[in-house]
Design a protein around this nucleic acid. Sequence first.
DNA 1: AATATATTTGAATATAATTCAAAAATGAGT
DNA 2: ACTCATTTTTGAATTATATTCAAATATATT
Lengths: 233, 233
Amino acid sequence: MGAQERTQREKAILESAIKLFNEKGYHATKMDEVAKGAKISKGLTYFYFKNKEDLYMAVTRKAFEGLKDVFRDVFRTKNKNGLQMLVDLVQKYLDYSQENRMYYQAILNFMGMLNLYNNHELRKSIDPLILESEHFQKLLDIHHDCGKFGIQMVSLGIKDGSIRPELQPEITFYTIWSMLIGYERLSGPVNYENKEIKIHIDNWKPGFIRLMQDMLKGSIQASRPNVVQGSLF
Amino acid sequence: MGAQERTQREKAILESAIKLFNEKGYHATKMDEVAKGAKISKGLTYFYFKNKEDLYMAVTRKAFEGLKDVFRDVFRTKNKNGLQMLVDLVQKYLDYSQENRMYYQAILNFMGMLNLYNNHELRKSIDPLILESEHFQKLLDIHHDCGKFGIQMVSLGIKDGSIRPELQPEITFYTIWSMLIGYERLSGPVNYENKEIKIHIDNWKPGFIRLMQDMLKGSIQASRPNVVQGSLF
DNA sequence: AATATATTTGAATATAATTCAAAAATGAGT
DNA sequence: ACTCATTTTTGAATTATATTCAAATATATT
């Protein structure tokens, strides 16, 4: 059996896992079924992956690799100023996680782990086996890469005047990212007062994006009504 | 055994659960230990709670009740305009979930469930036993109440001129809430370029709040009241 | 006190994750 | 083509826990 076949097996397991996690979620997915889906024996999944969580981390890694591609592609587009790039990123980011509900869940879950990981007190609540795993380590890198792309987009926007110059790129980008995360967690129909006033993802989204733009936009954009521009300079 | 003692037991179990979920997280907490912590037998926990998840929902309900109090208290403060209320809310919301990491996790988890719940396709991935449970039903109400308070604050701000009049209260409030959720998920030290830790919760927070204020503020505000000093901008 | 009802227990059961000893396949050297 | 070593694969055994349940105990009611 060559390296390709080994990879083949790993892929089969991963695909089976993605399919099942997608359909039933992490908990309701049984390692037995994952194996069956990949047409191998139960035990073999443990040859290729340390345990169920490691398998989930591998899925998460795939999810984050896709996300990084989104960041990279947006960053590489020509003829766009920084603000336009960010708006584009937001759209594509939301599309990506809309299309891949399971990926979105995995990404969110990893960020929750990161939150624990970054806290000296709470870090010990993560399985050490996972912390040392290749997938987790790689995920740290990929997450960082995404951050780098985003921060550069804000910097670019400040340079080209599309974003307010007094904003700090790191903080600004992480605030945008946090908006995206929260947006997705809250999105879906939201009833208000049992009236028909419903906030649904499809009509929240444009308002959400507009708010974000207003928050960032610099001098080269038309000014907002009712706001004294430049009050900070 | 009177109703008080019954409640006593329930409380003891809940407290034991909170303590353990806090220390080890949901998964690593064993029903055995919960029972031990409450000084009762394992089986009795199943007399008071349907199952482990139901117990977690009960904890979540406590968490959300506390959060609703935060919303209510802020809403009731006199001599504050709408924007000031919202800024105050954001501060207190973040404080609340900073102090209660486990509550924060529970709230976030419930919102994830809500996301599934609101999607006709995905709803079936939630345990029906939970959907019908008193705790879940109550949580839907409490969540809704929080939304109502927040939306009213935005409406108030629009009326009193502290918030831009063209903003739609529902969308605006849910955007703010989504920012908060994402902020917490991302917060904690974030390394950038392996240089010194640059973005930490404590210096991200003021910038985050100011960005939010800028996003909302209407004509009557030239300066920014109630802003944490020492901002990075 | 007798009976009914509610609470409590802990051993039994069920469900999955995980391990592991043995079997099968592969590959390298002869 | 035949060792023998290494890698891969299997599935039965083990382990860990959530959950159930029949029996025991406590409490309330008449």
